[in-house]
Design a binder for these strands. Sequence first.
DNA 1: GAGGCAATACTCGGATATGGGATGTCCGAGTACTTTGGG
DNA 2: CCCAAAGTACTCGGACATCCCATATCCGAGTATTGCCTC
Lengths: 157, 157
Amino acid sequence: MGEGVEWALHSCVNLAWAGPDRAVSAARLAAWHDLPTAYLNKQLQALARAGIVTSAPGPRGGFRLARPLADISLMDVVAAVEGPEEAFRCAEIRQQGPGGGPAASYAAECAVAQAMGRAELAWRRELAAQSLDDVRQQAERQAPDAPRQLRDWLASR
Amino acid sequence: MGEGVEWALHSCVNLAWAGPDRAVSAARLAAWHDLPTAYLNKQLQALARAGIVTSAPGPRGGFRLARPLADISLMDVVAAVEGPEEAFRCAEIRQQGPGGGPAASYAAECAVAQAMGRAELAWRRELAAQSLDDVRQQAERQAPDAPRQLRDWLASR
DNA sequence: GAGGCAATACTCGGATATGGGATGTCCGAGTACTTTGGG
DNA sequence: CCCAAAGTACTCGGACATCCCATATCCGAGTATTGCCTC
């Protein structure tokens, strides 16, 4: 799993802490955690294409959340950054070689793919069940000053 | 996720179909599904290191299951082939940059990592709950002749 | 004919290349602010 | 003093390099079989 997912999740929470009235540029978000600016911008563009954040060019421009954190699930972010394709992709090797004659009917999904799919479904369900607001609340419980620190730092630049 | 997982899972079921008395070489297993022999051998070696299969060199050598299919979970195979490390690895970016002063205590796990870890735990639980014997039964339900076809093909070579 | 021995063929196991995608970087198009000149 | 217009600085967005790991391959060490030679 790419590390862009971690960056995107943290950035979304940071955007929520920055507030809905203030747009934050990719450069600011990257500097906050010492990340490569242009590459984080790439991930943010993916979030923008998915409708999770909105973007604005020019001075006072940047990114801001397109909707409340409570309406954004972890699944939304992961799908936006990593792509919609499943992690386990069945290549239907059962149909190849001597084992897979044309006589057999492959209407049913491969048993291996079924089993792996069940596991991946459980993963996706758990991701979809958790909103970014849950993450934000937990983070604030651990570091209550984090939101203000970020806002102060943004205001001082 | 690497495609070696799919190959390993199918190969384990094939080994069960071949029977416990007969060792099957990596070349035979690969030819059965038109896979690159040497690379499949690599995955089988990983299974051997994990104690899922046993290996024997020389003529009449090859691989065979180290224990019944019912005692092998999907999780065992995935961990053996893909490695034990988690798919989502937290880089602790919250500690980097201006956002992460030394004043903050990082005893608690990052909220993002916690949330992603819950999802990955659900995935692992589902994988651990399914045994390879379940997969075999489902596969035989779809293609009852598959075991005999494989045994006949192995005997004819 | 029986037994031992050498030759052989086959296997795993690890060391060695290669290609594609994730990672990282750079520049152009566009926008809002600022400044400056004129009315 | 007010307004307009040009200049400027800042932003996103996509095109362009680079690096690492999954993929793929090859060769050596070891073993059971097989055939042969000797007794």
